[in-house]
Amino acid sequence: MLIPVLIGVSVLTFMIMRAAGDPVTAYLQNPEKATEQQIQAIIKKYHLDEPNYIQYWYWLDGIVHGDWGISQQSKEPVTETLAKKFPATFELALVATALAVSIGISVGTRAAVRVNSAFDQGTRVVSLIGVSIPVFWLGVLLLALFYYQLNWAPEPGRIDKEFDIVPKYTNFMLIDSALNLNFDMFVNAIAHLVLPAITLCFASTAIIIRIMRSSMLEVLGAEYVRTARSKGLPENVVTRKHARRNALIPTTTVVGLSFGGLLGGAILTETIFLWPGLGQWSAGAALNLDTAGIMGFTMLTAFIYVLANLTVDLIYARLDPRVRLG
């Protein structure tokens, strides 16, 4: 399943890239200063004077062997930039996912258990706003309020300047600060993460709350829940062990799907909070028509998204004994 999809993705991105403009620039460090000789060498190397399907073959060969072209924006091979920017985005996305899943599941469960209560009604309003609010507007509002007006949040970015000299091993700020046993830096990194993570997780949280609430409601009406109650089990055991475990099954699927929205949302969130990750960089690539950069980002996100959904399928099989893999 994975391989055909990825081949399809590569064909699609190849087509977009060719529609975007001159393929030669995607392999040059400095297209303005390139000599005729260099251009000819590139054309020969990637067979750019031959039909498209042959070009695609040589291009794919390059992709598989780590030659993703040169980004005009960062003036270096795309793969290097992707590797450099990846930890920032991954850290943010991970924190946002953790927030979305934990808040979504607990709030969704509570809303279903106390259906039609004030808590439930409030949850419905908040989740409706969550799925309707533009990510970028929310980000701008939070930044204006908590940084520019109240000055509670640190300035946009991943970490304060004073920690620039601290050695970085992994480029994950939370891990790096822990490795350096630098508690101040750890707290600082978390403070920088709060607003972007809230912005990024808001929509996914709302979606997870909704699906959790509705599947919980369905499960709570099931016969086996009544059986559990009639056996005299305490209510919280019934909700947690009998109902919630089953309600988690549809929720897991949605978590995987909303991860795609998270990757898209990262473009906007990172742009607003000056987060030096893939999202911010890809927005720049799209604006400057950096074809190699756009292609690299698209391929990488597709790969991550497909992997995330594969992981969800595996979790699914664990949660639901009726699902057998293979």
Binding site: L12, I267, F297, A302, Y305, V306
Partner: peptide, 8 residues
Amino acid sequence: LSIPSLVL
């Protein structure tokens, strides 16, 4: 469907 819509 395997590329996040905003990215594509």
